[in-house]
Design a protein around this nucleic acid. Structure first.
Lengths: 129, 129
DNA sequence: CAAATCGATAACAAACTTGCTATCGTGAAG
DNA sequence: CTTCACGATAGCAAGTTTGTTATCGATTTG
């Protein structure tokens, strides 16, 4: 194969994403892939086998393998367990998206109470206890 | 009942948490309760019934009720759907916890490559769009 | 070559969340 | 009183993730 015929992984991905079903699946597993990177990189950097890490996380070797493949979204419980074992924090931040503030004259701004959507920010921290 | 005999909800909670099984459950449902607050407050502030909000989220009224009760951890997929319907972002932030940096002399710092745990921050954004 | 270890994967059970329908008691409106 | 909409909840099916055991091919080690 000539060099000019080769495709980068990005190109391959972009092509695959043209398939709507694949795109949905790709989108659905966004969290799974982020977690996969965490687990894999942690494991490699610490020179652990899947079996050893599995033991440390209180799960089986196949489950670690599945997490590293990243095709299933882990449950919240699993995130919490990873936080324990991998020395990472999962901070789930909930932030309401503000509506586009309408253009209002300065006078109107000072004279009218703005019926704002009361934002309820919240951060849930899953970390080693 | 006398006022002096009354308990605040915090006191009741602290008492319940003495039960180990209850404590585990309380911890397990941390995310569920945060989501519950989001759903409930959004719904009330917009004057929606559970049925109307359910329709808007593409789910049933009992499911909205369950989310508001907060005793089940929603799946990642559900978080994504709530992000769509509630005008909120769920930012799942993964941050490795740095090891306590050992006290090292300035000279050592400049002369030795530090074998650091390579931190892999990652933020997954579940949002409308 | 033989043995051990590795990661990937299949197969099945168990647990949990969600979808759905129906129903209950409550409270408001007619 | 009757009617209506509300939220809570039961019951059951369906889908997804996890737990578990076993096995596979590949690689390393003796």
């Amino acid at each position: 194969m000539k060099l000019s015929e080769m495709k980068t992984s990005d190109e391959v991905l972009a092509e695959s994403l043209r398939d709507p079903a694949y795109a949905v699946e790709w989108n659905r597993t966004t969290v799974a892939r982020a977690v996969a990177l965490q687990v894999l990189s942690y494991r490699v950097e610490h020179g652990l086998s899947q079996r050893l890490l599995a033991k440390r996380l209180g799960m089986s070797q196949p489950q670690v393998a599945r997490l590293e493949i990243g095709e299933h979204n882990p449950t919240i419980d699993t995130l919490a367990r990873l936080a324990q074992g991998l020395n990472v924090e999962f901070a789930i931040d909930v932030r309401p998206i503000e509506w586009e503030p309408k253009l209002v004259s300065k006078r109107a701004q000072t004279h009218h109470a703005v019926a704002t959507y009361q934002a309820h920010h919240a951060t849930v921290l899953l970390a080693a206890g």
